[in-house]
């Protein structure tokens, strides 16, 4: 059996409310909150980045597992805010996790789905008997004044994938990808550009729906076979609508829907939703996870919770505890700390 042995999340403590950003942008907060279905977002401190957040989440992951860090063969981190353009985030994180030197590593980038791509690589390596750390972290970029500023947030979700004491079996994974230019950032540019409403139907909805349908068709399942569904969450509206279109209920998506309270953590968004579900899931329950990365592609996973989850959930710092531990900042504090 191959799957998730352990997991860990990290969300910075700072939050900014939509009202604060709307005030700075001269916009109507009520309209923004209604259209994006988001009330506040997380932002990092000045000394936090993708590497530091991945380390914090990774330390929770490994401290809750019996596997020695030196028995881990690879590390893959997906992000669109790797601290360096050239020099891997993975080696910094592996060093801080005490993985020794006998591991392979490469950083992944596929907009908001680099993290699920990392899990897929880990899944196939785990089938060959290796333990792999994989996950995502992002300090999402947004230009001051852009609509993205309301949602672009920070967070990390890391996983240990292997064959031993699996808590969440990855039964299958499929992907749906195409060349769709809906959101991009060129080298040397600080902030991403996007194609406005084109990020909706031909991009997010087409890919998420196609990947989820492909997974269910391949495995002979229907939405009611799943206890939880987690979708990439760039705002509150998109995942709610895609769930409805696919035939999932509000109840199935509510526990993994974090965007309304922490914003869009980009490559960590769907994976933090998965962490929140793993924190509370019971043996025998089934999860459908589907990410989305602009450019564009979706990875969909069929996950089955095992008996090992009961022991794994004990004394673990939960995603919910990070969501609740928050300090509000004003727009100036946000600019000083999070806008680089």
């Amino acid at each position: 059996m191959v799957g998730i042995i352990s997991w860990g999340s990290y969300i910075p403590r700072y939050r900014i409310k939509v009202e604060e950003i709307a005030k700075a942008q001269g916009a109507d907060a009520v309209v923004i909150k209604e259209s994006l279905m988001i009330s506040e977002k997380s932002f990092p401190d000045i000394d936090e980045d993708t590497a530091t957040m991945a380390v914090e989440a990774g330390r929770i992951t490994l401290s809750s597992s019996a596997i020695s860090p030196e028995d881990i063969s690879a590390i893959y981190i997906g992000s669109e805010s790797h601290p360096y353009a050239v020099k891997p985030t993975g080696t910094i994180v592996a060093q801080a996790l005490g993985m020794g030197n006998g591991y392979t590593c490469a950083d992944l980038q596929f907009a908001c789905k680099g993290g699920t791509a990392a899990i897929q690589v880990a899944y196939y390596m785990a089938k060959a008997g290796l333990n792999v750390v994989a996950g995502a972290a992002d300090t999402a970029q947004s230009a001051p004044g852009d609509i993205l500023e309301y949602t672009a947030a920070a967070g990390a979700a890391m996983f240990l994938v292997g064959k031993e004491k699996v808590c969440a079996e990855i039964k299958d994974t499929v992907s749906f990808s195409s060349d769709t230019p809906d959101f991009w950032r060129k080298p040397q540019k600080k902030y991403p550009s996007h194609a406005g409403s084109f990020t909706g139907e031909p991009s997010y909805f087409r890919h998420v729906m196609s990947a989820a349908k492909m997974l269910m068709k391949k495995n002979g399942t229907v939405p009611k076979d799943y206890d939880y569904a987690v979708f990439h969450q760039p705002n509150g509206k998109f995942p709610s609508r895609v769930a409805k279109k696919l035939g999932f209920t509000e109840k199935q998506i509510s526990d993994g829907m974090l965007v309304t309270r922490i914003g869009n953590t980009y490559s960590a968004a769907s994976l933090l939703g998965l962490c929140a579900v793993l924190d509370i899931a019971k043996p025998g329950q089934r999860i459908l996870l589907t990410s989305y990365g602009s450019g564009a592609g979706s990875d969909s996973f069929d996950i089955l919770i095992t008996e090992n989850i009961i022991a794994a959930q004990k004394s673990r710092k939960t995603t919910q505890s990070f969501i609740e531990d928050k300090v509000y900042g004003d727009y100036l504090k946000y600019l000083k700390r999070a806008v680089r």
Partner: peptide, 20 residues
């Protein structure tokens, strides 16, 4: 202990990480 950025050698420089 938490893991944070400590300092960097200018905009082009290496980032030093470590404990706070």
């Amino acid at each position: 202990m938490v893991f944070r950025k400590l300092l960097e050698k200018g905009e082009k420089g290496v980032i030093q990480y470590g404990y706070k």
